[in-house]
Design a binder for these strands. Structure first.
Lengths: 250, 250
DNA sequence: TCATAATCGTTCACAAACATTCAAAAACAG
DNA sequence: CTGTTTTTGAATGTTTGTGAACGATTATGA
């Protein structure tokens, strides 16, 4: 099947809102629910989005998250809230680093119109950044097939020429003792370097990453602001520092 | 196939509206549905549009500005042939630079399975390269919005760390006196540098670029192999050198 | 935990869009 | 003017997109 006008419409809305409900699409397009479902199935098949219960969410190819069954519109909205809070920290005209990864990806729409200048190693971020009119620089480097992340000495070499106002990183786990961790050593190297080049560093990660430990250490917990949603008391205490931001999900 | 007045009319509407329905075209031109279908099939064959159920849509930004008269089925096939010949020069396991641009883009499928390692400054090339299983490095740099080319000191800086077996460049014109030229000075700088880092440099360009001169000079004519299709006698003589390759179209 | 409601995938019948064929009309060349 | 080629539009049967119906699955709140 090939792209129809309706498909474009869906993708446009999705790029704007990150997450859409089926009811919105039915109302917006005037098509039936069956048709919308079919569209979503098709668009998912070509990796443009990911279906979730009640709707769909935009897919950037960095999907390492193994099928956590709790994917739903509500869950995605929480992640969006984290992204919005993170982007809200950025002030007019700042120069920031945006890590490859899904959560940082979701920050992009919230950065539009601020005159932000972005450096990223996330290939999949670029299209969306440009679409939102954001001045964008790419680190070079080896293209990691699946994820579209740029890594290796070329990436770190290019990165080291910059200095950032803020730096936003993703992580696969955070833990009181082991700090922020991520599976891939090469990506960890990029993250670590980016952090060292920034006045302020933030890690964006939802509560499901709390207490998890992944293969490679990126930073100690206290050395970056953590932007996340609800945490249990023990974890709260562990991460408490002046830069930590907690997103309250009502 | 001849380019009719109706074809121009269709493309004009398409450029305006991005997507058109067949019914609109029938009404607008006064031609029958069969005829419109035929037109769309023909225009699709030369890559000016993409057919979708119920109408047609413009494929991608690169091609939008081209007019009907610039293209034909024959022309399209010639370009593919040029790309095939260019890619055929690459030997097993070589390290090459692939310039941003449509003609170099067409080389990608022919490079698959050769163990080629590619460095490119063309953002739009990357997906296709990865899809064909080709090891890919990206120069970093400023992302030029519409074209997706990476340019600027970051791009040239990253590039200068490499050495290539072969380098394939696109050009907007070639001329006995003024050499290979291209409109954008920033892109020209990247091309020039890439050429200087390669054992062998080739320019891929079809005969419609012969005698044309664009804003910025990249290289003198004799300093790179030219891969093109039929040329008139005067031009033939001018470009004659040991690396020039002419694609013979039957 | 269970009951209820919302969301989901599947099937089916119908309509819209499609490629293909063929003959008439128009353009062209000698 | 005559024979040939090209373009066109109608008719054909086929494929594809669509919406409604139904039972299965998944969230949610008591």
């Amino acid at each position: 099947m090939l792209t129809t006008e309706r498909h474009e419409w869906i993708m446009d809305l999705l790029r704007q809102k990150q997450t859409v409900k089926i009811s919105e699409l039915v109302e917006g397009t005037g098509a039936s629910e069956s048709t919308i479902r079919r569209d979503l199935t098709e668009l998912e098949a070509i990796n443009l989005l990911e279906r979730i219960h009640g709707g769909a969410t935009i897919r950037d190819r960095n999907i390492q998250e193994l099928s956590v069954s709790d994917k739903s519109v509500k869950n995605e909205q929480e992640k969006l809230q984290i992204a919005a809070v993170a982007a809200g920290l950025v002030e007019e005209g700042e120069f920031i680093f945006l890590d490859a990864g899904t959560t940082t990806f979701r920050m992009i729409p919230f950065l539009a119109g601020k005159g932000t200048v972005v450096v990223t190693n996330g290939l999949t971020h670029v299209d969306t950044l440009i679409d939102h009119g954001i001045t964008t620089y790419l680190t070079g480097g080896y293209v990691k097939g699946k994820t579209g992340a740029l890594v290796g000495p070329q990436a770190t070499g290019a990165l080291s020429e910059y200095r950032f106002d803020r730096c936003f990183l993703g992580a696969n786990g955070f833990h009181p003792e082991y700090g922020y961790t991520t599976p891939d050593p090469e990506e960890a190297a990029v993250k670590k370097l980016a952090a060292s080049l920034s006045r302020r560093t933030y890690v964006v990660a939802d509560h499901s990453k709390a207490g998890k430990v992944s293969f490679t250490k990126v930073l100690p917990l206290a050395s970056a602001g953590l932007i996340t949603d609800s945490l249990d008391a023990a974890m709260m205490e562990a991460v408490e520092n002046e830069t930590t931001v907690k997103v309250v999900t009502e």
